[in-house]
């Protein structure tokens, strides 16, 4: 069983390669449709520039080369997993990305745990206690948190919990300039993580709650639940052993989508909470026309999407063994 799953994933990944390749090519040309180039941005930021200066920069960035030559050299590099050089930052694209990916992953992981956990719990509760005040409260809560703009939620949390109550810092990932190490440092990061993770969870939590509730209501009405009840199983067992496993599948699909969007990060949350993640890096590099960096982030995102999709498919079969991996692997 496990080896067939591994083979399935490998197979999916190999099929994903042409997709990634096509994405890279499309990105390369699409991104160049944006008017203005990096030299103009740099000169603009400088407030003044000489012709000589602009020429030097274009030459250095390779912007004076014909497009097809730029394209060929980019593809050559990408095949060797070399994402190129960000002239604006004077650094390798890969080092810029890997420096930031940790912060993004941490934030995403935390918000994923909160939103899936709370979302599934609230959704299931709302379904089990259908047509009670509790269920109505949960539904209303999920609609409100789904509809509230995240930046506003973030700022309100800052005003209440940072400024008025003083429980959490307003921004950043750790206390700047501190010399903390080990557990103390980890706690400091956790302390900074609370507000951004909670804010980011609001949106997905609402989504999971609604998905879970709908799917749970449907499942609870199915025949096998009636059978279970007829067998004399307790409500607790029916819900935990039978209904939950079936109802959670749509949530898994959605969680896969959430993971896929991870590298893009959340520009809004990172911006409001001064979180040094990839979302902001992508956002800034777009406005600076730092194309190599932007392409690098897109490239990694496309890989992540392909990999996550394959993994989610496999996770389905674990949660619900009736689902089979299609193709020749079905009986593996």
């Amino acid at each position: 069983m496990w080896s067939s799953r591994a083979r399935y994933v490998l197979n999916r990944l190999i099929h994903g390669l042409p997709i990634i390749f096509a994405i890279v090519i499309a990105n390369f040309f699409l991104i160049r449709l944006a008017p203005g180039d990096a030299a103009q941005v740099l000169a603009g930021e400088a407030g003044a520039a000489s012709e000589e200066y602009m020429r030097q920069i274009r030459q250095q960035f390779g912007l004076d080369q014909p497009l097809y030559i730029q394209f060929i050299s980019y593809m050559k590099n990408i095949l060797m997993f070399d994402m190129g050089y960000s002239f604006r930052h004077g650094r390798e694209v890969s080092s810029l990305i890997f420096e930031r990916v940790g912060a993004t992953a941490l934030l995403m992981f935390a918000s994923m745990v909160i939103s899936v956990g709370v979302g599934v719990l609230l959704g299931a509760l709302a379904a089990i206690k259908d047509r009670t005040i509790l269920s109505n409260v949960i539904v209303i809560f999920s609609i409100v948190s789904y509809a509230t703009p995240l930046f506003w939620v973030g700022l309100m949390l800052i005003i209440v919990f940072s400024i008025h109550l003083g429980w959490f810092p307003t921004s950043g990932i750790a206390t700047v300039g501190s010399t903390m190490t080990g557990w103390q440092y980890a706690l400091d990061i956790a302390h900074h993580l609370v507000l951004p993770a909670v804010t980011l969870s609001f949106f997905y939590m609402a989504l999971y709650t609604r998905l879970m509730r709908a799917s749970m209501l449907e499942t609870l009405g199915l025949d096998f639940i009636k059978t279970a009840r007829a067998k004399g199983l307790s409500d607790r067992k029916i819900v935990s052993r039978h209904a939950l496993r079936n109802a959670i599948l749509p949530v898994l699909t959605m969680a896969g989508v959430q993971v896929s969007s991870m590298l893009g990060g959340s520009v809004i949350i990172e911006s409001v909470f001064g979180w040094p993640g990839l979302g902001l890096l992508a956002f800034e590099s777009l406005f600076a026309r730092d194309l190599n960096l932007l392409l690098g982030i897109f490239f990694l995102s496309s890989i992540l999407v392909v990999v996550t999709n394959a993994i989610v498919d496999v996770v389905y079969t674990i949660v619900d063994p009736r689902i089979e991996l299609k193709g020749k692997l079905a009986h593996g």
């Binding site: 700022l155 005003i159 940072s162 400024i163 810092p169 307003t170 911006s271 409001v272 001064g274």
Partner: peptide, 18 residues
């Protein structure tokens, strides 16, 4: 030198003494 993208958050940081 700290870099925070959102101007309201910067103001909150000043207000809180960070």
């Amino acid at each position: 030198f700290r870099f925070i993208a959102d101007s309201s958050t910067r103001a909150a940081g000043v207000e809180r003494g960070e």
